[in-house]
Design a protein around this nucleic acid. Structure first.
Lengths: 226, 226
DNA sequence: CTTCCATGTTAACGTAATGTTTACACAAAA
DNA sequence: TTTTGTGTAAACATTACGTTAACATGGAAG
């Protein structure tokens, strides 16, 4: 897998399923987190901001469909992939699930291998856009191969972390990156760093670039603009 | 459906299936083309460059998997969506299909409605990546990915709570949201805030937007309209 | 007309979130 | 070894967000 490992949150009330799915996806290199009911799923989703959420439909507290609707009604979860996982193999449930805003639907009894394949497929489709090409935004050019940033043909020397941070933000100009996302993409999920660390790096990048192209969205994150 | 209609190529050797699938997807506004074996599928794919190809696996001349492999090996078909449609519901086939580069897999006997939902879901997923899932109501555009509101192409800066509030209301224009609903969606269930808090935020949004698009429904709640 | 209730309006305040600077551990280069 | 630069933490400064409280308004009921 290229880049940092993707975060997957799995919500199911059956411990067996949690364990099997966790094990098999974990083996593939994904970072797995679990929840055992609807409320916990929402709570953990807000903490972690996973890349993918796998939701059982029949869960205590809140059903998977309800969880999906609640998350989808919030701006921060528009990009999050959602797969429903359920014993209800009937038509109506599937359609309802997909129209609620889910990206896929897998019926129980599921084979772990099939689920893994589907998860891989869904990430492959999303990922293949993000190649290691140079980014040109406005008069700023970012070349990940040469590890070089030029602004108006003037070279700017950035440290590794600074560069990775800038590259991430600039890879999708205008898009807001949550602090969680930045942490997991640039630093990795297992690393624990203080709250101010991101700010300090943001500041260094801002300083070195000289141009104000990184905008703070308070309470949310940062975004890059020309 | 927004924008140009999507082209879908369906390849299956059973005329009944071709007809049913064509009819149901055609009703959704897609442009449908058909092929009755593997070779014809490849040929037509090269002519048409469809956005999505639905491939039966058991076909004369070439199987769906072979067709998929051949097309995927060409740069021009890297981005083309592929769904397998087959009677083989066994695990091995599904995995093989997905790992060949398919984006989804639907087992026969299929329900037309389920297939339509899956097709819609897969296009939604791709569309959102390109265009962003912004809400457009009248001349107001709300982009949750960029955390940005534009009204007549003029940017409006909203704070987090203000944005979340507006996003919720605008996600269903015309629908009235009860104060309780707003509280639980935007603030969360456990948070307790005073009565006037919602009003103040509503006011700030109204003020910043400049246009009167949030209507008070006295004794009930608020709704968003153009 | 008055009363009452729901909402509108405004300003002020506490604080959470971010900005800034300095210091230091650590690794790589000299 | 020293030197240099990078990444992180800690300590503080600063900003503006969210909330409240106090009061205004307006419409419906009596």
């Amino acid at each position: 897998m290229e880049g940092k490992p993707k975060k997957i949150l799995i919500a199911d009330d059956e411990p067996d399923i949690l364990e099997i799915v966790s094990y098999n996806l974990g083996k593939e290199g994904y970072e797995i987190y679990t929840a055992k009911d609807g409320n916990e799923a929402i709570e953990r989703a807000k903490q972690l901001h996973p890349d993918l959420i796998i939701l059982d439909i029949m869960m205590p507290k809140k059903t998977g469909v309800e969880v999906c609707q609640i998350l989808r009604s919030q701006p921060a979860f528009q990009d999050t992939l959602i797969i429903f996982l359920t014993a209800l193999s009937d038509e109506a449930s599937q359609i309802k699930g997909l129209e609620t805003g889910a990206d896929d639907y897998v019926s129980k009894p599921i084979s772990p291998k099939v689920l893994v394949s589907r998860v891989n497929a869904i990430f492959r489709r999303i990922n293949n856009k993000e190649t290691g090409k140079s980014i040109q935004v406005g008069n700023i050019n970012i070349d990940p191969v040469k590890f070089l940033v030029t602004i108006n043909d003037l070279e700017v020397i950035l440290a590794k972390k600074e560069f990775e941070l800038l590259y991430l933000l600039a890879s999708r100009p205008g898009r807001v990156f949550l602090r969680n996302e930045i942490l997991s993409q640039v630093w990795g999920n297992d690393v624990i760093v203080g709250d101010r660390t991101i700010d300090v790096h943001i500041r260094k990048v801002r300083q070195k670039l000289g141009v104000d192209c990184i905008t703070t969205v308070k309470g949310v994150g940062y975004k890059f603009e020309a």
